[in-house]
Write a protein that binds this DNA or RNA. Structure first.
Lengths: 160, 160
DNA sequence: TCAGTGGTGTTATGAGATAACATCACATGC
DNA sequence: GCATGTGATGTTATCTCATAACACCACTGA
């Protein structure tokens, strides 16, 4: 993360109420779909939502226990895999971190704008698909999933 | 890599002559730029070129010595960092692998089509930048570098 | 010839992720 | 009720990926 400029307070984490609401929504939706929103999955999603920015898996592991006890790695990685599969979280490959999905739409190919200075990320709806789809068609590839991540500076860090 | 279909021979590696020529070109170009194309850097580039597809860092480490002796990790990671900085190689974050740059143009933002079946990759010139740039402008971000990787099936694996 | 810069060699360790296997919870059919 | 199958979890160990730190070397320019 920060290498050149100081850390700023960007968007910041959502309020506790926001987190609760999002958790409730997710729980209700997945339960309705016949999925099991277990304690571990809810806890990991809660941590991601509360952070409001990408979080490293081992940070989730460290923060997992409400009593300060860390989780075992597979506990968190399994929850992340589930959340990702269900579109509630995304892995950001270029920084090996995970973030709650901020888009309401299910089954989307997300793209991210990532500030290398303060760590803020913005999830933007696949405005990229067009160009990539065109290239894929030209090459004869059938795309299953995409990783689109742009690194740079957020408005706040640019202003600083 | 392969999970569903068998491994096919896709494009395959280039001929030894192709590799030699590309190595010579890279050497000449960087030397002209005042960079030092050292043995380790040339060797890693040679391995990447010869593979003709993404290679894991520890595979490069294992293949490094012509006598079968592996390299020490930093040797290869340093060479990769240099090659990437100079536009001769790319890291593919979604699979933690490295590939020789197949584009002639310097200083480009590459995008990749990656076959999850046979491992073939196609480097396509940033046809993606448009959409992403637009989104970044809208969000006020200044983009420095991008990671664009599409996973799916290549034509050969689709046909199989 | 001496300092500065950039590259290499080496050791060790940090960070990210998963394999394997035992156990548990829960829904469904009998 | 209770057997049975499926999916989730707990636990241990390990594997893969990547870099920190420090000593040494090669080249360049004052």
């Amino acid at each position: 993360m920060g290498e050149a400029c100081h850390h700023h307070h960007h968007d910041g984490p959502p309020t506790a109420a926001d987190v609760e609401r999002a958790l409730g929504d997710a729980d209700a939706r997945l339960t309705a779909e016949g999925e099991r929103m277990t304690a571990a999955r809810l806890r990991v999603l809660e941590l991601l939502l509360a952070a409001g920015e990408p979080v490293k898996a081992y940070d989730l592991i460290a923060r997992f226990g409400t009593d300060g006890q860390p989780a075992k790695p597979p506990t968190v990685y399994r929850a992340l895999e589930f959340l990702e599969r269900k579109g509630l979280a995304h892995r950001i490959a270029s920084i090996s971190a995970y973030v709650a999905c901020s888009s309401g739409t299910i089954d989307h190919s997300a793209a991210f704008l990532i500030c290398d200075c303060c760590g803020a990320t913005e999830e933007v709806a696949a405005p990229v698909a067009e160009g990539l789809d065109r290239a894929a068609r030209a090459a004869g590839y059938a795309i299953v999933r995409t990783t689109v991540e742009a690194h740079g500076r957020c408005p706040a860090c640019l202003a600083a």
